[in-house]
């Protein structure tokens, strides 16, 4: 937090004044307040919202988008964007599933392999996709939007080629644990999400690498001058995003019971939405993974609440649209003040 403020906007103390401080707090907590208000409203409006089972559902429904959004946060902090995550979800999911299926037609040669092997390969596939995007962005200076748009298309094509366009069903029970298992009543999906969040939070707030991510996004020139290898940082954030997309893809396959080649279409948009609603600036250098968590929760809570109350799903899209734009307007207003 301190780091980000120093890097992005210079020292906080000089003549900020009450109005500015209020704006900073508004940005920091506004979205959390919105989440709390919506939860309060839903608790009153629907008797089931605050039940243990529904809260578990909301967390489960947040986990996959949440993990994608955490990876996206790293990328957006460096002024980048990763449009390919939805396609990487499908590719990693189908490759891992082919190693962990008992179906004779869909299994990779020699399968089924232990779930650990399938998951390791899935993660590597995701990281490899991210590494390609990362190299294209950091070494060849191709705009992230273009590089990852290319990967969006290529990874989807590879998914269809790899599986012949067919789904991979009959996953081993061992592999399905990551999508359907529970530990002490908490879904494994949620536990993985929580672990990813804690690690990401620690990396961004307490490690040198995390500080460098903020620095490389806040002011790349200054970061380079002060000895930070900005290219390396830019490369690594795409590897992180790709790896997390791979993880999310396997969780999705394990959750739905089958890896589908058309899985994950447009997931990048919900991930970006969560990041942006959570207050991370597309201009780079400013934002927190806690904000992303709240943004992802907000999207799930709204969807869940409207489903519970039997509201048509089209309203969900409208509300999500309003939230995204409102969050960025807040961001822009803050930038103008600076």
């Amino acid at each position: 937090m301190e780091v980000k403020q120093t890097v992005a906007s210079g020292s906080e103390g000089d003549g900020g004044g009450l109005k500015r401080r209020f704006a900073v707090y508004g940005q920091k907590y506004g979205i959390l307040v919105a989440l709390v208000l919506i939860c309060l409203f839903l608790s009153v409006a629907n008797e089931y919202f605050l039940t243990a089972r529904n809260i578990t559902n909301v967390l489960r429904q947040t986990s996959i988008n949440g993990i994608l959004a955490i990876g996206m946060t790293f990328v957006i902090l460096t002024r980048g964007i990763d449009l390919s995550v939805g396609s990487v979800v499908a590719l990693a999911g189908i490759v891992a599933a082919s190693l962990a299926t008992t179906s004779s037609t869909a299994a990779a040669a020699g399968g089924p392999y232990p779930a650990v092997v399938a998951i390791a390969v899935g993660l590597l596939v995701g990281m490899a996709c991210g590494a390609v995007s990362g190299v294209v962005v950091s070494r060849f200076a191709v705009p992230a939007f273009v590089a990852t748009l290319g990967m969006l298309s290529a990874a989807r094509g590879l998914t269809l080629l790899y599986g012949g366009g067919r789904p991979v069903p009959e996953l081993t029970p061992e592999f399905r644990v990551i999508g359907t298992g529970e530990v002490a009543g908490i879904p494994v999906l949620v536990l993985i999400f929580a672990a990813v969040f804690v690690i990401a939070w620690w990396v961004l707030s307490a490690t040198r690498f995390g500080r460098h991510v903020y620095a490389a996004g806040g002011n790349p020139h200054a970061a380079t001058v002060s000895g930070i290898n900005v290219r390396r940082i830019r490369f690594l954030v795409y590897v992180i995003s790709g790896g997390l997309a791979g993880l999310a893809g396997m969780m999705l396959a394990a959750r739905t019971g089958s890896a589908l080649p058309q899985a994950g279409i447009a997931y990048e948009l919900d991930a970006i939405a969560a990041v942006v609603i959570g207050g991370t600036s597309l201009a780079g250098g400013v934002g927190r993974v806690t904000g992303t968590l709240i943004g992802a929760l907000l999207i799930s809570v709204v969807n869940n609440g409207l489903d519970l109350m039997g509201v048509e799903s089209y309203y969900q899209q409208v509300i999500k649209g309003v939230l995204i734009v409102a969050a960025v307007m807040l961001d822009q207003a803050r930038h103008r003040r600076e």
Binding site: Y48, Q61, T256, S258
Partner: peptide
């Protein structure tokens, strides 16, 4: 979509 139906059904089973 299978994934969308799964989310929808989870919420309906709760409601």
């Amino acid at each position: 979509s299978r994934a969308e139906a799964q989310t929808l059904m989870e919420n309906w089973l709760t409601a």
